[in-house]
Simulated scan of single mutants.
Amino acid sequence: MKASVKNLKNETVGEIELDESVFGLPVRADLLSRMVNYQLAKRRAGTHKTKGVSEISGTGKKPYRQKGTGRARQGSLRSPQFRGGAVIFGPVVRSHAHDLTKKVRKLALKTALSAKLADGKLVVLDQASVETHKTKALAAQFKTLGLNSALIIDGSNPDESFMRASRNIPLVDVLPEQGANVYDILRRDTLVLTRNAVEQLEARLK
């Protein structure tokens, strides 16, 4: 399948052949959902914590005798029914990450790329480079291209001036090819790939 290649002035400067095994897959919402859950779970800090009975400071003495008081038997004031006592089955410090096979992760990334192309939300740029690092000039070019919310993926070494110029533009992210991921692709409206990014993604995902 072919796609037109544009420059930052929104002029068509050529065509590129997109590999159907990477950009032409059927869209599977279940696969994308699993991948997003995997990424977000991996990000979670998991530092929430409550104290168990063994961690509460206090005496280990039995509060009152077993029988004859008319009250329920008690063995410790650190029990959960007392104020300042323990929390039963409370959260503990742990990792929320879970496994997802490499094959599924690779397929999910290809599906996300295919979904953007199917929705007409994929733009291929000749190159993502600018002469100046000033944000104003690049913002005007993005407006010409109709980019309000976009993820821009360049080759392995993105242009430093381009990255600095785009840093202050809201809803615009720039990533190198090796940082391409499903969550960032889906959270922005338009996906912008450079020629280099297309070639490197195809080589990596074929």
Rank of each mutant, 00 (worst) to 15 (best):
E131R: 09
Q39G: 00
H133Y: 08
G68W: 08
I56R: 04
K2T: 10
N157H: 13
A41T: 04
Q81W: 03
V53H: 06
L138C: 08
T12S: 10
E199L: 15
K42E: 00
D19N: 13
D119Q: 14
H48D: 01
E17L: 12
D99T: 15
Q66V: 08
K2A: 11
S149W: 10
G68Q: 04
A72M: 06
G155I: 05
F162R: 02
S79F: 02
K136W: 00
S114T: 04
L175T: 10
P158M: 13
P80K: 01
K134S: 13
L18C: 02
T111F: 04
Y38H: 15
V5A: 00
R105A: 13
K110R: 11
E15D: 09
L40G: 04
A45N: 09
V124G: 01
G146A: 03
D126K: 14
V123H: 02
N37C: 13
A3Q: 07
R34S: 15
K102N: 04
A150H: 07
L205Q: 03
G75A: 11
D154Q: 12
R71N: 14
K2R: 14
L193H: 03
L77V: 13
V123Q: 03
M163H: 10
A97W: 14
A137G: 12
G120H: 12
D159L: 11
D189R: 12
F89V: 08
D184E: 01
R105V: 10
E131A: 11
D159G: 05
T12D: 01
H48V: 09
V198M: 05
A97I: 11
K67L: 02
L171D: 13
L31K: 04
K206N: 12
Y64P: 02
V36R: 04
Q66K: 14
A137C: 04
R204Q: 15
N7Q: 09
R71E: 12
K102L: 10
I185N: 05
G24Y: 00
R167W: 06
F142H: 08
K2Y: 05
I56D: 06
D189Y: 06
I88E: 03
G60W: 01
V123E: 02
K42Y: 11
E131V: 08
A203P: 03
T59G: 15
S129W: 14
D126C: 03
R34K: 15
H133C: 04
H98E: 08
L171A: 08
D184C: 04
L138V: 13
A203E: 11
Q200R: 15
L171I: 07
K61V: 13
E131Q: 06
F142S: 10
V13D: 01
S33G: 14
K67I: 04
V13H: 11
L193W: 07
H96I: 14
L193V: 06
V182H: 05
A128I: 00
R73I: 09
Q200C: 09
F142Q: 03
N181A: 09
L40D: 13
L171N: 06
K67Y: 07
Q141S: 09
A86R: 09
Q39V: 09
V123K: 05
A140F: 07
L40T: 13
P63V: 08
A139Q: 07
H96S: 09
L138E: 06
S129C: 11
T47I: 12
Q127A: 15
G75E: 07
T190W: 00
N7M: 02
S21Y: 05
D184G: 02
K206I: 02
R105I: 10
K9G: 07
D126V: 03
G85H: 05
G75C: 08
R94L: 07
H98K: 15
A112E: 02
Q127Y: 11
G52K: 01
V22H: 00
